[in-house]
Design a protein around this nucleic acid. Sequence first.
DNA 1: CATACATTGTTAAATAATTAACAAAGATTT
DNA 2: AAATCTTTGTTAATTATTTAACAATGTATG
Lengths: 209, 209
Amino acid sequence: MFKKFKIPDATIGRLSMYSRYLIEADKKGITTVSSQHIAKATGVTPAQVRKDLAYFGEFGTRGVGYNSRELYNYIMKILGLNKQWSVAIVGAGNLGRALSQYKGFNQRGFNISCIFDNDPKKIGKKISNINIYSFDSLAEKVKDFNIKLGIIAVPASAAQEVADKLVKAGVRGIINFAPVNITVEENIILRRVDLAAQLEYLTYYLEEI
Amino acid sequence: MFKKFKIPDATIGRLSMYSRYLIEADKKGITTVSSQHIAKATGVTPAQVRKDLAYFGEFGTRGVGYNSRELYNYIMKILGLNKQWSVAIVGAGNLGRALSQYKGFNQRGFNISCIFDNDPKKIGKKISNINIYSFDSLAEKVKDFNIKLGIIAVPASAAQEVADKLVKAGVRGIINFAPVNITVEENIILRRVDLAAQLEYLTYYLEEI
DNA sequence: CATACATTGTTAAATAATTAACAAAGATTT
DNA sequence: AAATCTTTGTTAATTATTTAACAATGTATG
């Protein structure tokens, strides 16, 4: 698996979609699929599918297509999903609690190992069998559980501080749900997910039609 | 407000970020900001800020910058956020419940009016004062509450059916949290948010470093 | 086994988005 | 009031991404 070239960010998101389609196809007994099939199921063009895959190698057979299971395995490997990942969620508010229980993470190999909060009323409790720990024990627990991924679900005002703590503890990738821009050192992967902004895309387009 | 040209999708997301910075700046008594200030606070380039704004008009004063409050108001108007929007959430599972309670929506003018589910145990109950109704009453309630935005938080297998129902009831914009591609007629605005895929971006980049 | 057909992988063309450069316009200083 | 400084808005250049086209390659058919 080689990542020599710069791959468009969007490609990664599409690979994830492809993989979901492929595992479904495989379950249904569809052993072979074409770029056309994948494209139709995921809402992209066949050329896009082939281009995306071409970044990583040759996975198909000309005149035939792709073996569903095989391509699925390749993509999962590309995405780094051929193993389990431990994840920490920081913030046991509504969003943090929901994400802790969200089944979709488990389905893709993510294991929410622990939750952190600074509310004494929450510390020591559990959310669907996941322990809530104090901020103070973050570094310790991150090392214990070998956690490389962190989810920030705290208010905007605390997000940067939490990010710093996570990075210091050894976390390598962070998703920030707080609606604020935070910065991390260069070798840390950071993504921002702004739920309200998603609705704002809709209102923007609906506004003037 | 004119949307003659095709605006990059990313621009809309950035406008949302800018607006969040601007209201904060205004609260702190910073009446004037430059594209440089906005850029630094939101993690983009000053040229990007000016380009984004230029799609919609001239909001600044050369040699001076932008009036924080004024630009904030302009952007909110552009995004269609100068009024309240009623939103329906479909699915009262973990994710649906969390989104119903998520404070971030309210802060930006979104009002979760009702929740729909088909579980008899949930119908009739409330989640932080928001009623849970049956799928059957969806069309009726969407009209009663004048709901134009819908959030799909049901399992992938039910997502398309829910989308169809929402559209038929008069909803114009949809966010789909189910990890599946759904289709809607052309004049409906649809966005897909795949939470697991967000983590997969991280693992992709962490995999081979 | 030659011909027709299907579908990939790849190269080229077209489109889109970002960044850089700078003239225009207003504020400040001498 | 001329000269200098600042920062916008806009145009041009650059970079990135998507789409289209097609040669290469394998399968199926007569």
